[in-house]
Design a protein around this nucleic acid. Structure first.
Lengths: 242, 242
DNA sequence: TATCGATCAAGTGTCGACACAAGTGGACCC
DNA sequence: GGGTCCACTTGTGTCGACACTTGATCGATA
C-alpha cells in the first residue's frame, strides 16, 4: 500500500507519530481532538518525555490542548486500555510504571506470540512481501551504519507491523501492537546501549533469511530468541540503572 | 479470597454481572455510571440480548440509563477496546460481529495462550489451589447433572479466572480476559448443543487431574485440545445455523 | 417511473458548568 | 516543636447545550 501512494520509498525519516497512531488504532479520526491528545501523550511516554508516575490530570492537559476535559478523558481511557496510563477511580491518572517483573511477564507472552507471527508469516509471505521486508532491512542497515538509533528503531517497529500483516491474524496483531506500546520506551533506550544496535540488526538479517526460505520453524525460533535477547538487554539496563 | 469473605461456598448461583465486571476490570468503581452502563451492554451482548450489528447510539442509551451521553460514550469506548463494540468515526457504534474467520483467529491465539496458562499453573499451583479448583469441578459436575447450562458456563468462566490467577502472569490473564469476552456469546450458546456440556466437563476433569499431578506438559496439551474442541463445536454451530 | 438533489431529523464530537471527593496547607492544641 | 483537625483549593464524574455531519425523506426533473 504505502509504496504505491506517494513517498519516494526511502530517505523520508520515520514519523513516530504515524507509527504510534497506527499502534493505537487511531489512523482514521486522526484529526479528532481525542486522537491528537492520545498520540501526544503516548509519544511523550515512548520517547521518555513523560516518566512513569507523572501526573496526567485532565485539567492541566485540557489547558495544554485548548480543549475541554471531555476529549482528554477519552484519550486517557484509551491509553489506559493500552496499559500506558493508570487510572484509579477518583484519583488523578498517572503514567503507568513497569516494574521489571511486569516487563518479564510481557516478554514471556510477547516472545511466544512473535514466534507465532514468524511461523505464520513464513507460511504466508509472497515474494513481494519478502522484497518489501528486504527494503526495510536495507534501510535498517543504513541506519546501523549511521548509528542512527531513532531511524533504526522506528523502522524496526514498522517492520514488525509488516510481519504481522503478512501473518494475517488480526487479533494476534492487535495484541502484539498493544504489548509493543508498553515496551517501546524500554526497547528504544536499550537499543542505545553498547553493541545492542548491531546485535539486533544481525537478528533481523537471520529472520529475513528464514522468511525468504519459507522456513517457518526456523523463523519462529529466531523471532523467539531475538525477543529473548531484547528482554535480556532491557533487564540488564534496568538492573544497572538501579 | 472469596471463600473467606462471606458466601456459604455453594448454592449461590453465579452472577454474570460480577464475572463480566471482573473481565472488564471494573471491579473498583462498580457504582460509577460508566461501569453500570458498560456491564449492562456487555452482559446483553454475552447473553444474546444484543445481537451483532445492533445500533448502540449514545442518545438512546443515555435515555435508557437516565444519564447524559458522557458516561455512555466512555462505556462504549471501553467496550470497543475489548472488541465487543465497533466504533467508526462519526458513525453510530454497533455491537461487533464475529465472522467465523475472526473466531478462528481468536481461537488460534487463545489456544496457545491457554496452553501457556496450563503450563504455568501446573508449575505454580499450591495444594490449596488444587483444592479450590476441585470445589469448582464438583460444582460444575452438579450443574452438568442438573443440565444447568448457565450455572456450568459461569462456573467454567470463574474457573478459568482462577487458573489464570494461579499462573501468575497478569498480562497473560488480561489478554485472555479480553479474548474471553469476545467469545462468551459463542461459548455460551455452543454449550447448549448436543453432548457439548458433558464433553466440556470431561475435559475439565482431565485438566484438573493433570494440574493435581503437577504435569505441566500434559496440562498445556489438554488445555490446548479442550480449546480446540470448543472452537470446533462453535464452528459447527455457526455453519449449521448458516 | 427511476434518479438526483434539497431538506430535515437524528446523532456525534466537543464544550463549559456543577456537585462532590481528594489533596493541601495552616491554625490550633498539647 | 510535633501532631491533629478543619477550611480551601484542585480535580473528578457527570450534566445539558451547541455546531456540524450523516443518513433518510421527499419532491423535482428527466
Amino acid at each position: 500500500m504505502s509504496e504505491v501512494t506517494a513517498e519516494p520509498v526511502s530517505d523520508v525519516p520515520y514519523d513516530p507519530t504515524g507509527e504510534i497512531s497506527r499502534l493505537l488504532k487511531l489512523e482514521d479520526r486522526r484529526e479528532s481532538a481525542v486522537a491528537q491528545i492520545a498520540v501526544w501523550i503516548a509519544e511523550g511516554i515512548v520517547v521518555g518525555r513523560l516518566h512513569p508516575g507523572r501526573d496526567l490530570n485532565s485539567v492541566e492537559l485540557a489547558g495544554r490542548f485548548n480543549s475541554s476535559r471531555t476529549p482528554v478523558r477519552e484519550a486517557l481511557m484509551l491509553l489506559e486500555s493500552e496499559g500506558l496510563v493508570e487510572i484509579k477511580a477518583r484519583k488523578r491518572p498517572r503514567v503507568a510504571s513497569f516494574p521489571s517483573e511486569r516487563v518479564r511477564e510481557i516478554y514471556f507472552v510477547r516472545r511466544r506470540l512473535l514466534a507465532l507471527v514468524g511461523e505464520l508469516a513464513a507460511q504466508r509471505a509472497t515474494d513481494d512481501d519478502i522484497a518489501l521486508l528486504g527494503d526495510r532491512l536495507a534501510r535498517m542497515e543504513r541506519a546501523v551504519e549511521a548509528g542512527d538509533v531513532d531511524e533504526y528503531f522506528w523502522c524496526h517497529v514498522d517492520t514488525q507491523g509488516h510481519l504481522q500483516r503478512i501473518a494475517s491474524n488480526q487479533i494476534l496483531a492487535d495484541i502484539l501492537d498493544s504489548l509493543a506500546l508498553r515496551t517501546l520506551v524500554l526497547r528504544h533506550t536499550s537499543l542505545g546501549q553498547g553493541e545492542r544496535l548491531r546485535e539486533s540488526f544481525k537478528d533481523q538479517v537471520r529472520i529475513h533469511e528464514a522468511l525468504a526460505a519459507r522456513d517457518s520453524e526456523l523463523a519462529a525460533m529466531l523471532l523467539s530468541r531475538a525477543t529473548q535477547a531484547a528482554l535480556d538487554a532491557i533487564l540488564e539496563m534496568i538492573e544497572s540503572t538501579l
